[in-house]
Design a binder for these strands. Structure first.
Lengths: 246, 246
DNA sequence: CCGATTCGTGCAATAACATGCAATAATGTG
DNA sequence: CACATTATTGCATGTTATTGCACGAATCGG
């Protein structure tokens, strides 16, 4: 049997059965378990499935709807979210970007918080449902699937007409020279608009984003008011930028 | 059974039943209680549930309302959703209103569906994430908390400039004389705009809404193309309106 | 307070894992 | 064709993960 053919069969079985068990496959296809393992690792490296102990599971978040992923909060993100939540004061108008870190922020908000939250992320908006005293403004647009946020002229226009107190900005790179960067051009432009619409800008950054650069620039580090990370303050952070350890 | 798969099943049962009992699970899944305990401890360490004596409970009580309501799909609503999903044809532009019934509609869509879905509900938009080939247009506005949809001038303007093939309209009352009604004035106006923006209008209605009236009128029964209910066609349904049993 | 259940820990058996190595087959190159 | 290179596979090795069991401690419900 050809290697490629075997891998195709693995994917076929995976979508049919919803899972793959390495030992069963070795017996079925009459090859060693090592071969199966190698195949599974290859396919996992291509992102076509997710490797687990004993076999593999589907890669696509098919039957894992929003609710599940909302709860998939690492303790790190929860701490970041908690640190961010403490920065919001009663009555403020706050812009909240999309992303799982900001979902953690919402989860850390006190239930009786009284403020206005502006977002272009349907996930953030939906998560704000339990907060009776939070006014939620949602900007629409065409949904950018990768990060599940609304993008488009209407979105940009919405932020350009806004004067907010605080903005929680999500980026995929925080670098001493490249500054704040993200993976999509249009998203970068929108984030720049969000940044300009707020008096203070806070970036919640997990450790994997510190010191890294993504293709599209959003703004320089001196444009943000505070960086929340895990660990000590990076020594390259401009003096005007505050820092907290989440 | 793969360990990862078993843990996923535990989370699924948790969100379905609202609690987990270790001893029951051990018997159900045919593993020792030690294994279940270890699984529960792992998941608790990841913050995905809260460990209690004898089992586990959902992690974030604040978000259970939303999560629960999303998963609280009665078999009736699932059937309605399935019936509605079959009405969508490839390439169409479809308006989908908010509400749990329409969440069931999204859940029933085929994963490879290729169409454009327009909505002003962040929950619907978020639920559409797994559908790679569905273009999602989200209209924004101020979030109306009771039904978790965006309302406002921008929302109305969005629909008024749209020509869609199909519209799934949610109402709280379907009555022979009062027609389609809902509980909020502004929402009623918006729904009227949605109805006018689509060539065909479908109403998915659970039995508790048939024959009831809410304060604010949306449109007469003759303005809809199809009513999907559970059971026989109401004899007062205008002849021009099609009917299906979901 | 007591019995029953549940919990945590250590332990051992088994399964699955990564890694390096060698044999073989397929492919590329002069 | 001759030869080198690469890909694929199975095997041996040591490591890690998973699981069930045993035992004593902690907890629960009266």
């Amino acid at each position: 049997m050809l290697t490629t053919q075997r891998k195709a069969m693995l994917l076929e079985r995976l979508s049919r059965d919803g899972r793959l068990v390495a030992s069963d496959l070795a017996a079925d296809l009459d090859v060693s378990e090592d071969t199966i393992r190698r195949d599974l690792n290859d396919l996992a490296a291509e992102g076509r499935l997710v490797r687990v102990h004993g076999g593999a599971l589907p890669a696509s978040p098919t039957h894992v709807p929003l609710a599940r992923r909302q709860l998939m909060q690492t303790p790190e993100k929860a701490r970041l979210g908690k640190a961010g939540a403490q920065l919001i004061q009663r009555g403020q108008v706050v812009i909240v970007d999309g992303g799982t870190t900001h979902l953690a922020l919402v989860a850390a908000l006190p239930l009786d918080l009284h403020c206005t939250i502006v977002t272009h992320s349907p996930g953030i908006a939906a998560a704000l449902e339990p907060f009776q005293r939070v006014e939620v403004i949602l900007f629409g647009g065409r949904l950018f699937r990768h990060s599940m946020v609304a993008l488009g002229a209407a979105t940009v226009a919405g932020y350009s007409g806004l004067r907010a107190d605080l903005c929680f900005l999500g980026v995929t790179g925080v670098h001493p020279e490249a500054g704040l960067t993200t993976g999509d051009a249009e998203e970068a432009a929108l984030k720049h608009g969000m940044l300009r619409a707020a008096a203070e800008v806070v970036v919640l950054a997990t450790p994997d984003k510190i010191g890294t650069v993504s293709p599209w620039g959003v703004a320089g580090l001196d444009r943000i008011s505070r960086l929340v990370t895990q660990g000590d303050r990076p020594n390259w952070l401009p003096p005007g930028v505050e820092h907290s350890d989440g």
